[in-house]
Amino acid sequence: MLTLHAFGNVHPAVHGETRDLRVQWALEEMGLPYTVRGWDHTAGETTGPEFSAISPFNQLPLLEDDGLVLSETGAILIHLAETSGRLIPADARGRARVIQWCLVALSTVEGPIQPLKLIDLGALGEPGEVRGALTGWTHRLLGNLNRRLEGRDWIGTDDFTIADLLLASVLRQLRHTDLMDGYPEVKAFYERAMARPAWQRTLDLYAERLGADRAKIG
Rank of each mutant, 00 (worst) to 15 (best):
L103I: 07
L103F: 11
V104K: 08
V104G: 05
V104I: 15
V104Y: 14
V104Q: 10
V104C: 11
A105R: 06
A105P: 01
L106R: 11
L106G: 06
L106W: 09
S107W: 05
S107E: 13
S107C: 15
S107T: 15
T108H: 12
T108C: 13
T108I: 15
T108V: 15
V109A: 03
V109E: 02
V109D: 03
V109L: 09
E110L: 04
E110G: 02
E110I: 00
E110H: 01
E110A: 10
E110T: 01
E110F: 00
G111Y: 09
G111L: 14
G111M: 15
G111D: 15
G111K: 13
G111Q: 15
G111T: 15
P112Q: 10
P112I: 02
P112N: 07
P112H: 05
P112L: 05
P112R: 03
I113P: 00
I113S: 02
I113G: 00
I113L: 06
I113T: 03
Q114H: 14
Q114V: 12
Q114C: 10
Q114P: 07
Q114D: 10
P115I: 01
L116Y: 10
L116H: 08
L116V: 02
L118D: 04
L118T: 00
I119N: 02
I119W: 14
I119Q: 12
D120I: 00
D120T: 05
D120V: 00
D120Q: 14
D120P: 05
D120M: 11
L121T: 04
L121R: 03
L121C: 00
G122E: 04
G122W: 01
G122H: 03
A123H: 07
A123F: 12
A123E: 03
A123L: 09
A123C: 03
L124P: 01
L124Q: 00
L124K: 04
G125L: 07
G125I: 08
G125C: 11
G125K: 10
E126L: 08
E126K: 09
E126T: 08
E126G: 11
E126P: 15
E126N: 11
P127D: 12
P127L: 13
P127W: 13
G128M: 10
G128L: 10
E129L: 07
E129H: 08
E129T: 06
E129G: 13
V130P: 11
V130K: 13
V130Q: 11
V130M: 12
V130R: 14
V130L: 14
R131T: 06
R131H: 01
R131P: 02
R131C: 01
R131W: 00
R131L: 04
R131Y: 00
R131E: 06
G132Q: 05
G132F: 05
A133T: 10
A133N: 08
